[in-house]
Every structure is written in C-alpha cells, then in structure tokens.
C-alpha cells in the first residue's frame, strides 16, 4: 500500500492540521517508512484470531444515576481562549 502525498494531505485535513508542501513531502516519506515496517504484520496468519481491544477482561462497569456537583460557570470558562456571556466563542462555522 504505497502512501501518496495526496493521502497525507487528506489525512492532515481530517486531523485538522495545516501543513506546508514541504511538510507533506517529509511526512509522506516518514509515514511510508513506518507503514512499510508495519507491513510485517501481514506475515502472520490471523484469519481465525479474534481482535483484542482491551488488555484485560473487564465488562459492565456502571455507575449509579446520581447527581454529582458540576463546575461553576467561572471554572468551566477559566481556561477558555475566548469567552462571551457564559459561552465559549468560536469563529464562524461556514
């Protein structure tokens, strides 16, 4: 699976990372190397192997539906880069 610069551009966009042409070229090279290394996994036959998502076998961890204190509005907004009347402000979406 050869990785192209177009792939890297697509991925950068998906990941919301602004990249220069220079970076695209560099990342394409580096990611291709890493992916090539990863390809060795294909040497293993995993046709009948179940994927392992969690290292440990735990299930059904639930909590009670009991109200816990929230932060104050001031605490919520304290790290906000731009806040306005109790909200986080963001630039226009479209």
């Amino acid at each position: 699976m050869a990785l192209s610069e177009k792939d890297v551009q697509y991925v950068a966009k998906l990941a919301r990372l602004e990249v220069t042409d220079q970076e695209v070229a560099k990342y394409t090279q580096q990611l291709a190397n890493i992916l090539e290394y990863v390809e060795q996994l294909n040497k293993l036959d995993t046709a009948n192997v179940e994927p392992l998502t969690h290292p440990l076998d735990v299930k059904n961890v639930f909590r009670e539906d009991k109200v816990q204190p929230s932060l104050t509005q001031q605490e919520v907004l304290s790290n906000g880069p731009e806040v306005q009347s109790g909200h986080f402000r963001v630039p226009k979406i479209m």
Binding site: V67, Q68, L71, Q73, S85, G86, H87
Partner: peptide, 23 residues
C-alpha cells in the same frame, strides 16, 4: 435520567449556559 451518560452532571433543560458541566 437524572445525570448524563458518562458523568454525574444534571440533565435539566434550560439552565444557564455552561453550569451543568464538569471536567
């Protein structure tokens, strides 16, 4: 439910903005 899906914050409708919010 009384609380949110993954935390203990209230689910009340219409409260002041960002007052039913935890980390």
């Amino acid at each position: 439910t009384a609380t949110k899906l993954f935390c203990g914050c209230r689910t009340t409708f219409g409260n002041e903005a960002n007052t039913q919010v935890c980390p």
